[in-house]
Design a protein around this nucleic acid. Structure first.
Lengths: 249, 249
DNA sequence: CGGGATATTGAGTTAGTTCAACACAGGTGG
DNA sequence: CCACCTGTGTTGAACTAACTCAATATCCCG
């Protein structure tokens, strides 16, 4: 990791994530606790490893800005990306709650993380039940996203998987207010897509180009533009474009 | 669902799960709350649907005895089994915490569930932080199992996936004290395996037989016997049987 | 004994893989 | 400013793991 600990900067009261609709406004007392709970900020460069498998993480993180991803590897090097974490997502909850990390986390872009004290998590549970509830809620939501990925990787064809993942990333970005006029910065490589979807790089490339050819989106470098969200959704759900309602029996 | 609500039977103080090493003994006060929190028991027949996607579950369940599985389906009928839930596992936490269920749950065997009040979950968070913590812990543990499945389905070959899943089921059963002398009742069909692993039924059958032929386990009907746990682990991790350490460069 | 669910087997097909070039862009050092 | 290098994207060809289809066998239950 090429980054160093730095003095705390952003006051929680001025957290930029507050502006976003999907986050609830904490009560005053809660906010004060969060402020105390927060130990500082960590800035990491794109490509850096934030957490790694087997480590006993000493900290709990929250993404303040930037993109990261969680992944697991097999001994021979095959990699599976578990999900992409964006601002507001937790990292390392597992190592705080359980014994040790069972996956690694890497930064996709330069990223700023809020660092929280692992020991104090108990204090949170004892004194701030609403925050504790939020933690469980986040955890349940994560689970739900994993369910969705598992369905995709297990049962969707390559073209459906890609369409589906692009939609998820698009929606997530939109919720975070990162989409301007259907355009968005997607700091992913085709290899990342492939590893998230359980596909080979080559086939991901070909399938991606097949989708592009249908004018569902444009994606050059980091610049992604959604052209036909409806159409992409149809591909994701394997619906034929103009399906005649099938006979009832 | 072919079952009906029934008067509460098992006292939490006499919960059969207590005997098992992996469960912690709750404090007296906690136990009393759990007892109040529990609304009753629900008995369902094998094959019955316990929860279904889209429902606003009114309850939260815990498996007291029996096997169940969570799954999702695509519009055209493809099914992905997300995981198998066994005694001690929670069901429907998602619908209590979030708005509605995003997956379904079906009983694999006749199953007894403890039914908990969804409304009281807030009371739990407010007054029993240690129990709230346990809930988050369980949720994090689930997530970790899903990570593992995603890795398997996304990156392991069919034979590795099967070996890996059988090992997981074996270990989980052993932890629950359901294995006697390497033998265990596995109430699964090959179709369940296939749907859990993202494979076709036919290929699952062939691969399973290939594994059997290596004398790693015996599996006829519901009766599973582990013959060579080490060997199965090697297959799961794609290690060649007698690998010569590879040259350092 | 009959019927439904499950398991097995063979044969042909295909979606996705691997291998191997090659193209292109940005970034660095001389 | 050029030459080079590395990471990323693209393409074609050959291959194969896994799929589908279809038939048959086996088991269990009433």
């Amino acid at each position: 990791m090429s980054a160093a600990n730095q003095p705390k900067r952003t006051k929680c009261a001025a957290c930029p994530l507050k502006k976003i609709a999907i986050f609830r406004e904490p009560a005053e007392e809660e906010a004060a606790f969060i402020e105390k709970f927060k130990e500082g900020e960590l800035t990491v460069d794109a490509g850096a490893t934030i957490l790694s498998e087997g480590n006993h993480g000493q900290h709990l993180y929250t993404v303040l800005s930037g993109w990261t991803f969680r992944y697991k590897m097999l001994p021979d090097g095959r990699r599976q990306i578990l999900n992409f974490a964006m601002p507001g997502d937790f990292l390392g909850l597992q190592s705080s709650i359980m014994a040790e990390m069972e996956h690694s986390v890497e930064a996709l872009t330069d990223t700023v993380l809020c660092v929280f004290s692992r020991e104090r998590i108990w204090e949170l549970y004892s004194n701030y039940p609403s925050l504790a509830f939020d933690l469980t809620w986040l955890s349940a939501r994560n689970e739900s996203m994993l369910d969705e990925s598992l369905l995709s990787v297990g049962r969707r064809a390559a073209i459906e998987r890609i369409a589906h993942l692009l939609l998820i990333l698009f929606h997530k970005s939109r919720d975070l207010d990162m989409v301007k006029g259907n355009k968005l910065t997607l700091p992913l490589t085709q290899l990342h897509l492939a590893d998230a979807l359980g596909l080979s790089l080559v086939h991901t490339n070909k399938t991606l180009n097949a989708l592009s050819a249908r004018k569902l989106f444009k994606w050059r470098g980091n610049a992604f533009e959604m052209l036909d969200e409806e159409g992409l959704l149809e591909v994701a759900n394997a619906e034929a474009p103009n399906t005649v309602p099938r006979p009832l029996i």
